[in-house]
Design a binder for these strands. Structure first.
Lengths: 114, 114
DNA sequence: GAGATCGGTAAGTTGTAGCTTACGGTTCGT
DNA sequence: ACGAACCGTAAGCTACAACTTACCGATCTC
């Protein structure tokens, strides 16, 4: 089964709010209140999402006075993308030639001749 | 906002059962009853998931007598992967050097000194 | 044609993820 | 030291997606 390792990746980024947070954090580090001001959810909701993201290793936090600044954790991001990549590679083993990033110059598209 | 286009991809594959179905369909075409026999959910549940997958363009169905055989739609799979790839590229614009499958030798590689 | 097989759909239930409000702790400013 | 700013956590609510049961149509077999 694949759900144990790769499932977490889907679960973490399966939420719209968390994806929005990750998108913001990719630009620059953000404080919790700043994120809550940008997003259509309350500050505690942001806090809870950040806890999920942190437990998944996607973000790191740094205390600056009363503020807590979150930033992306590059290693965690890479690991998560690896998990998703593993899913694609394993689940779609017979369709690897369709991976867009891996497109080879030979344009032999597998056409099912039914 | 990115959720409009790429959000559907996450929503479709955000479900464990649907990922399991896609994994099975990557091996070979399956009938609905066969899938339901493999998975820990009922046949109607499988049917509903297949409807979602079909409306997303991920699978195609073919009627063989009383049986309905589902198979992966390569174009839809590629499109879905493109959507996810777009998310990673846009959301993590500053972390492209961490994409495992995309390593380009021509680009300057800022190796992380951990 | 009758029964059996296969699968889609409707209707209803339920578990849970996400959200809000309320509260408490910590740190900074004055 | 006192109030303000900032944030985490607890508790509770709600909406929704996933699931089940029940029913029906379509197709094959005999």
């Amino acid at each position: 089964m694949e759900t144990n390792e790769a499932g977490e990746a889907w679960d973490v980024l399966g939420d719209r709010s968390r994806r929005a947070i990750v998108t913001r954090l990719a630009e620059r580090p953000w404080a919790v209140g700043e994120l809550a001001d940008e997003l259509p959810i309350s500050r505690p909701a942001v806090s809870q999402h950040l806890r999920v993201l942190k437990s998944a290793g996607l973000v790191d936090d740094e205390v600056h006075g009363t503020r807590r600044v979150y930033r992306l954790n590059p290693a965690g991001v890479a690991a998560l993308r690896d998990q998703l990549d593993t899913f694609w590679r394993r689940a779609l083993a017979g369709y690897q030639d369709l991976l867009p990033a891996d497109r080879q110059p030979s344009e032999t598209e597998p056409e099912e001749s039914s």
